[in-house]
Amino acid sequence: MNTAPFQPKSTAGRFSSFRPSPRFVRGVDLAGQWAAPIMIVVVLAIAAIFAPAFYLPTNLKTLAIQIAVLGIVAVGQTLVLLVRSIDLSVSAVLALGAVIVVQTQAGNSLWISFIQAFAIAAFIGLANGLLITKRQVPPFVATFGMLVFIQGARLAYTKGQASGTVPAILRAISFEQVGPIPAALIVWLIVNIIAIFFLRKTQFGRWIYAVGGNPSAARYAGIRVDAVIIAAHTICSMLAMLGGLLLSGYIGYVDLRLGADYNLNSIAAAIVGGTTFTGGRGNLLGTAAGAALLILLLNLVVVLGLPIHWQYAMQGFVLVVAVALQGFRQFLLSR
């Protein structure tokens, strides 16, 4: 008998005197759904007033590529959050991708190293999913342990000095432009369209929402809950790998810090976009808006000329506010 990774605790007895008005509940619900798009407009307005450099073409291109990379990783993270899990190993997978492609380029043909990269990513996702479903390890701990393990493996393999040049094909799919649009943005759009189609129109998509909404009900309905969770983790890791390839194509070299912030940022993007922690609620359009908002805010720190470490504070602040808002929203809706 296998219970869901984390059960929402009953909130019936807490604050029994607290009776929110329906209008208040609806307000919080709408705020949870629309926070990201509204904030994007606000940020764009602030940027237009205080930092005209924001709208320079080079900055816009940087923004587009960064949004695309984070957006792709956040699609995977959203799928995982929808089934009540979480993936903290995305940043390690992201960094691993760059290392694999760069290092194997010497001997192998490029396609073989691509296949290797995605096979390893799928294997990592599979391992995450198996730990979470079959051994019932809390998702945080399982994926965080995986993060430490992958980082260790990468350090042991590269001996701390990753080096090499990025193959031209990666540069082509991320940094080069198709007309005025960077190629990475097109990749992001394609990933989003495919993922939205799968979530909305296919049985697998319905399964994901069913498993996240109520795992035991899903099990009684004949859905193989464990398989759905494992699949979500596998897809998430493979998308993180794709994000890593695009990122290394954009940056043009590989270093050890590559992609370190993507754990926090991908979770923040999904949650700002209206995905809740307790699963079953959220969509990819919101995630796309969340990713855009986060990158805009981080970029604003740079354009306004603030010290770069305020980016950490900004990320953390966005995450805390978003999680608090979504947690409260879920609490109100569950009453």
Partner: peptide, 19 residues
Amino acid sequence: THANPFIITFGIASILRGV
């Protein structure tokens, strides 16, 4: 806020890192 403790403290950690 009834939010998830892990992620709240994860976010706080990021804020403190910046500070």
